[in-house]
């Protein structure tokens, strides 16, 4: 660590919290280079998706950000604080939810949260109010006084989320938060993260479920083999799903205007059905809708086959490990 870095935190903190700033972070475990020069910036007030294949270093990166691992090289700032040299200051502002974590089975959900509140030095009176509020937020109020051992996997996941929020962190690090959650809880999670971001929180979420990340994330960071990868910009041509009430009317019109298409679902020309076709981005889609409606085709829906995140992900040329 150079003196320049040390001087940096003697200076008054910048007015706008920068959220998460990662510069050239590397970390090796023996001969395995888990992180190999990660650059990342997550802004306050936004939900940033952390996307990458298995073993790409997502969890290791989150451990470094949470202040559990010292990076071999590079610098990290969490809300302006270095987790290595200013551990307590950074940790006071970080909420971390690991991908796999346990709960103390003998404690009730409320006791778990109160324990963490005490561990974050929150005064007991404030802590009790805060815990009640959090239990309501993650819909565990009715389980508040039952031992954590009776909670289902999804409920434990929600308890883990409440635990990460107990000290109102400025920066939230979530590793696969949606795994094990039922659809209702996933929607709740999305809304909660949205609300936290709108309140000025920096949210970094890793997940494999790209469709779900797509719904909640404002920005995306791709990592592969321990490096940040800038995906090649999504080509203007992408495959879209075009659906109409009458498959026959759709295909006849498409053929008449000379478009190339591939059959989707639906076989009867009179019944509803869909086709797959290459569309030039959203502008192309808008033109397609306008022309189809003008030609009297009973169009019902139109959408990209894969999400933009997924497309970007698939364009990553790195292989799985």
């Amino acid at each position: 660590m150079s003196f320049a870095v040390a001087d940096e935190f003697l200076a008054p903190p910048p007015a706008a919290p920068p959220g998460i700033v990662v510069r050239g972070v590397s970390r090796a475990f023996g001969s395995v280079r888990a992180l190999d020069g990660i650059d990342l910036e997550a802004r306050a007030g936004r939900v940033t998706a952390l996307v990458g294949p298995n073993g790409s270093g997502k969890t290791t990166l989150l451990l470094v950000l949470a202040g559990l691992l010292v990076p071999d090289a590079g610098s990290v700032r969490i809300a302006g604080h270095d987790p290595v040299t200013e551990g307590p200051a950074a940790r006071a502002r970080t909420g971390w939810m690991p991908d796999a974590f346990g709960t103390w089975d003998s404690l009730t959900a409320r006791q778990v949260l109160l324990t963490f509140a005490a561990a974050y030095r929150i005064p007991p009176v404030t802590a009790r109010l805060r815990v009640d509020e959090l239990l309501a937020t993650v819909h565990l109020t009715e389980f508040a006084d039952r031992p954590a051992s009776v909670l289902s996997r999804g409920q434990k996941q929600r308890l883990g989320l409440a635990r990460a929020l107990v000290h109102q962190p400025d920066v939230l690090l979530l590793d696969e938060p949606a795994s094990g959650l039922d659809p209702r809880s996933r929607v709740d999670l999305r809304l909660l993260l949205r609300r936290l971001a709108d309140d000025g929180c920096t949210v970094l979420v890793s997940s494999h479920v790209l469709a779900e990340l797509e719904e909640m994330a404002d920005d995306a960071v791709f990592i592969s083999r321990g490096r940040t990868v800038v995906p090649t910009p999504v080509t203007t041509q992408s495959t879209w799903h075009v659906r109409a009430l009458s498959l026959g009317a759709l295909t006849t019109w498409l053929t008449s205007v000379g478009a190339t298409w591939q059959p989707g679902d639906g076989s009867s020309p009179d019944g509803p059905g869909s086709v797959l076709m290459e569309v030039s981005g959203e502008a192309g889609a808008a033109a397609l809708v306008r022309d189809a409606v003008a030609a009297g085709v009973p169009l019902t829906s139109l959408g990209p086959v894969t999400g933009s995140l997924e497309q970007a992900y698939l364009t990553l040329e790195e292989e799985r490990r």
Partner: peptide, 22 residues
């Protein structure tokens, strides 16, 4: 959803100049 209640966190930022990992 209501706004979260304010939480007072005992800020343990070490005084500047303290050794790292204090």
């Amino acid at each position: 959803m209501t706004a979260m209640s304010p939480v007072a966190i005992d800020d343990t930022v070490p005084a500047s100049g303290r050794a790292p990992r204090s």
